[in-house]
């Protein structure tokens, strides 16, 4: 199925932020905005909710802590107890370093893997980019065109009057 998009090209982040606000205020739904770097303040104007990845990291870290403690206590305390340096079998202070490292390891990897999955990032040889300049120096606002519903010339005017240096159309096979 092909989808048609109108792309408004911008070359300044402040113009872009203002344009997003105005376009949204005019009742137009923005499909996606592409930028060469993270633009601060774009989340608010686009209405992007705060990411829940920190919560994922916290629970993965919690798993790491519990797993590390369980592993050390079970291995040295129950499965094969040995007296090492006259210390108790379960000597918690000595277990802290490994517990800490596994907490960090699980939190980092759990969060990053989740990030890759939810953002759909995976190695592939072919990538569809709306406008290749969006990874260089341009900001691209993509608006989905609904056949028969979208007024193309009005949309064009709306984007241009809000500072777009170019307005292009693009069809993408989804």
């Amino acid at each position: 199925m092909t989808k048609k998009f109108v792309l408004g090209i911008y070359d300044d982040e402040d113009v872009l932020l203002q344009a997003i606000e105005n376009v949204r205020a005019a009742g137009t739904n923005i499909y996606e905005v592409f930028s060469p770097y993270p633009v601060h303040g774009i989340d608010d104007v686009l209405g992007i909710k705060r990411s829940r990845l920190p919560i994922v990291a916290f629970f993965c870290g919690l798993f790491g802590t519990s797993f590390a403690l369980w592993m050390q206590i079970w291995m040295l305390g129950f499965d094969w107890p040995m007296i090492i340096g006259g210390k108790p079998h379960i000597s918690l202070p000595a277990f802290i370093p490994v517990t800490f490292e596994l907490t960090v390891l699980c939190a980092a990897f759990g969060m990053v893997i989740t990030f890759f999955i939810v953002t759909k990032l995976k190695p592939s040889f072919k990538v569809n980019v709306f406008d290749k300049r969006s990874t260089d120096d341009k900001f691209v606002m993509a608006i989905e065109v609904k056949e028969g519903v979208t007024d193309m010339s009005a949309l064009n005017n709306l984007l241009r009057s809000n500072g777009a240096i170019e307005v292009n159309e693009k069809e993408v096979i989804k």
Partner: peptide, 19 residues
């Protein structure tokens, strides 16, 4: 393309990237 993991620079992706 392989190394870039299909990155497009969408606002949502950047938001998560920063987090």
């Amino acid at each position: 393309a392989f190394l870039s993991f299909g990155w497009t620079g969408s606002a949502k992706a950047w938001s998560r990237y920063e987090t």
